[in-house]
């Protein structure tokens, strides 16, 4: 196939632009990787390429006390949060977007109000409640608080997306006598994949990265999550910050997320084509 020089030029420009975006996004991460290979005084020197390939920091992190356990905790907590949040949000969004009743706008605003308080301010009340239910120092303390604080976002996004789906798809199902539950699971879910994967991913990352609640609600090392575990990485004294291990740990915890994106992106790409819905 022949292409005009103009098209080639545009193509080149386009790819340059893509490269620029990628460099912008990953350079700090790349620098973290470079840093994670160096130790001691070498940390305080500037290198654009890894000077040595020393895995000491990685060994240090992976064999340190409970780090692998923290990764498992985070995985468990974040996945459960996503499943719970998506389940609650999909049903709620269906009601909020497809069924007409009074006070929907107000209800959405009330839900939004949950994201309007600074985290630090609700901590005291959260501790009281977590203790009241006997959930202190268990994964449920985190699962419940993350689910609730991610719900406003998830509900809002899904409501917006569901509202924009054409009316015809539902009508056919209703005529067939399908219950709302069937409509949600059979008709909407397949169409909502891009939105579900996106919000699910964002909720996952939110739970994966949360620090303040995780630090406050846990005591034992075997209950802690990765951000807390990273904050626990330390140098030989109070004043020393262990840059090498911190960078190594950050690289380790970022990898699962990259893998997740790679797995789910087919779903993101699939988009509306699956449903074959007419615009």
């Amino acid at each position: 196939m022949k292409r005009s020089p103009m098209a080639i030029l545009w193509n080149v420009l386009f790819y340059l632009f893509v490269v620029a975006i990628v460099v912008y996004a990953i350079f700090p991460f790349y620098y973290a990787i470079v840093t994670s290979f160096s130790t001691g005084t070498a940390l305080f020197e500037i290198h654009y390429w890894p000077k040595v390939f020393d895995l000491a920091n990685y060994k240090n992190v992976l064999f340190q006390r409970q780090f692998p356990r923290s990764v498992l905790n985070s995985l468990l907590i974040a996945s459960t949060t996503v499943i719970l949040a998506l389940f609650l949000a999909v049903t709620a969004s269906y009601a909020l977007s497809r069924v007409r009743f009074r006070g929907r706008g107000l209800l959405l605003m009330v839900i939004l109000a949950v994201s309007m308080f600074p985290q630090i301010a609700v901590l005291a009340g959260m501790i009281e409640m977590i203790k009241y239910f006997g959930l202190f120092n268990t994964p449920f303390a985190m699962i419940i608080s993350y689910t609730v604080f991610t719900l406003p976002f998830t509900v809002w996004v899904l409501t917006t997306f569901m509202r924009d789906l054409p009316i015809e798809i539902e009508e056919a199902a209703i005529v067939d006598g399908a219950t709302p539950w069937i409509i949600i699971t059979r008709v909407f879910l397949p169409l909502l994949w891009p939105a579900l994967v996106t919000t699910g991913l964002l909720a996952f990352i939110g739970a994966w990265n949360e620090f303040l609640f995780a630090l406050t609600f846990t005591l034992s090392e075997d209950q802690r999550t990765t951000p807390v575990a990273i904050a626990m990485l330390s140098g030989a004294s109070v004043q020393e910050i262990p840059w090498g291990p911190i960078m190594a740990a950050s690289v380790i915890v970022t990898v699962p997320l990259v893998v997740l994106v790679l797995i789910f992106q087919r779903k993101i790409v699939a988009g509306l084509t699956a449903g074959g819905v007419k615009g």
């Binding site: 630090l215 005591l219 034992s220 090392e221 807390v228 904050a231 626990m232 330390s234 140098g235 109070v238």
Partner: peptide, 10 residues
């Protein structure tokens, strides 16, 4: 022992 982050303010 319950270890905490090194930052004293935290």
């Amino acid at each position: 022992m319950v270890p905490m982050p090194a930052s004293t303010t935290d």
